[in-house]
Write a protein that binds this DNA or RNA. Sequence first.
DNA 1: CTAGGGTTAG
Length: 836
Amino acid sequence: MLVIILHALTVNLLYLVLRLAPIFRGGCLSRFLPLFEARCPLFSAAANSLLLSSDRAKNDNREIDFGVLLESCTRLHVLKCLHAFLVVSGKIQNIFIATKLVNRYANLGDVSFSRRTFDQILNKNVFTWNSMVSAYVRRGHFCEALDCFYHFSLTSGLRPDFYTFPPVLKACRNLVEVKKIHCAVLKLGFEWDVFVAASLLHMYAQFGLADVARKLFDDMPVRDRGSWNAMISSYCQSGNAIEALNVLDKMRLEGVNMDSVTIASILPTCAQSGDIITGMLIHLYVIKHGLEYDLFVSNALINMYGKFGILELALKVFDQMIVRDVVSWNSIISAYEQNNDPITARRFFNKMQRAGIQPDLLTLVSLASIVAQSNDHKNSLSIHGFVMRRGWLMHDVVIGNAVVDMYAKLGDIDSARSVFEGLPVKDVISWNTLITGHAQNGLASEAIEVYQMMEECNGIIPNHGTWVSLLPAYSHVGAVQQGMKVHGRVIKNCLYMDVFVGTCLIDMYGKCGRLDDAMSLFYQIPRESPVPWNAIISCHAVHGHGEKALNLFREMLDERVKPDDITFVSLLSACSHSGLVSDGQSYFRMMQEEYKIKPHLKHYGCMVDLFGRAGQLEMAYDFIKNMPLQPDASVWGALLGACRIHGNIELGAFASDRLFEVDSENVGYYVLLSNIYANVGKWEGVNKVRSLARVRGLKKTPGWSSIEVNSKVDVFYTGNQTHPKCEEIYGELRNLTAKMKSLGYVPDYSFVLQDVEDDEKEFILSSHSERLAIAFGIISTSPKSPIRIFKNLRVCGDCHNATKFISQITEREIIVRDSNRFHHFKEGICSCGDYW
DNA sequence: CTAGGGTTAG
């Protein structure tokens, strides 16, 4: 370490001495060589061999090829030193050497030194100006590049040549600038130079004028392979796979072969459009033409195979590479990461470090996702720290968004939020990430608030990702009126034809109780993929329309859409909600035999529910015993729920024992068990469960219910006392309870786990969140209109009973959607037949 | 001496 510091000091010192003391004029470079050695071996080797040859010529340094020396200089310090040497030895007056210096500074990252050198050159020529312009462009200083160009063409008295324009065009950031430069090109007559024309074409395409680009291309009198490549890559980058392949065909018909550039542009397009056949044909072409060792081609191949999920081929290409750069490593890492194999991805990252390749921004993007996938809380902090130390978080949105996403996926929404707030620039994706982050952590109304903040923020235009993040939050709290507003906006730009947006809308209508709207939308959107089918089937499942769900499944098969694992989850839950036991069994078999889908825990949970609800409790238990997987809480929970419905105490107690082994914290299971005892009047059992719950110090998932009135969603937590209409709500509830009692309602205290006096229990029951929401609905909407309530947990038995009475007293339809299904209350009866 | 067209992303 010390050596390095000392060394840096010596080089800097030397630089100063050389600048200040012209005594060294004509001094011998060989004296300084040892100082360069450690910092820049390549440079010192080149310098050494040049010195040797010049020594032989006994000509001091005059014969040294400083161009080559500058070229081999890879450290800024060494370059500055050499610069000083050139100044004191007067060689800086050589315009070629000076121009090369301008370039070298830009390549080593210090464009301000390029400019300083440039300003010191007195007799600038076209080369010098071109170099300065392209130096700015290479470092991304587009504004300065254009300024420099205008200065050049207007004040220098020199005439730009055709080398000038490609970099200048690249510096244009909008169409106006492109058109201005285009005029200059026309005036000077460089229009049909192949390089200039290719650049023009490329810029027009980049700013969306694909037809202008195409016309330029068609009008070109001379086309080289570069022109074809420019046209093809323009189409590729704008996502127009069909035209890209058309032009490619034409090019080959004219006898022009593809080169590595053509292939590197077309492969990502194959991946994007899912055209695996073309992709693999191109791979064959690559092998046949000996392009398989090209870095860019190999990288593109790895990426393509990664996107298709063909990891063996991605790995094969990676393994046979001779030279790998950071992109190669990033590509193989993200191939595994995106195919849900964070362990292998991590292994490649470790290998990359051992190979001495420095991770870049994109490596960290993949790493953040790896950490999130493997639930690796410890390393999330190191990643955040690494990214911050490098200043990347302040510099690039992409990595910032990746960190926000990482924290959100790890469930640490507070950290996600604070990173988000610290981002200097936020784009749509930043907002979308934060919305999804809240929604997926069960914070639906917070997700909606984030969206509202986004709308208040100027310059952010929501895209399809926004709707895909937001709509599930709306369906969660039942904000159908706001959801419909989104539907309206989506129609305007045809986004509802996007499979994911369309599916979210279907899900939203279905989960908000509007099956008809869900159905009519379903038939409007493309349905070649199983995704929208899964949504519409599951909508029918939660409404208890099993037969319709099965019909839809048959229709799906008729349309030759291949069902996936999710399809069968929806289908099996439809069967269980409607008591279609034998159908469920045969679909469970069909899934494995015909579609080779291995059932996972969700499927087993549905099957247990299917048997259990239908009263076949022994069947359900046998099914669990024969499972090849370790049953989790959802499986035992299904059995326990069935035991409650059918009043089986022994099996219920057994199931809850297993349940407390895998998930002892969920208070819902204690409630279920105590209900079982209460239903058959075993009060000592109820007391036992109650004390168990108390001893274990349960952390409750807070229960809430929501209701949408006039496009505004109100969320009520149990016992809420802060709502502006609080007084009226509790007044209405007291009123209702009195009427209910006169009609025969008896509060069922088995749903209260707290150990308090009976009148206190009654108050707890009547301040359950669903009742607050219903009462609010009654006082805020016109008489006899229907009320829709949404609850995050299952509705409790006492509330279920109470709602029946309320529907009778108020002559209203009351629709309650809980975490499981829809309950339709009308005239004192519930559609679920009291099996909830 | 200088230049175009190319690979990775949340």
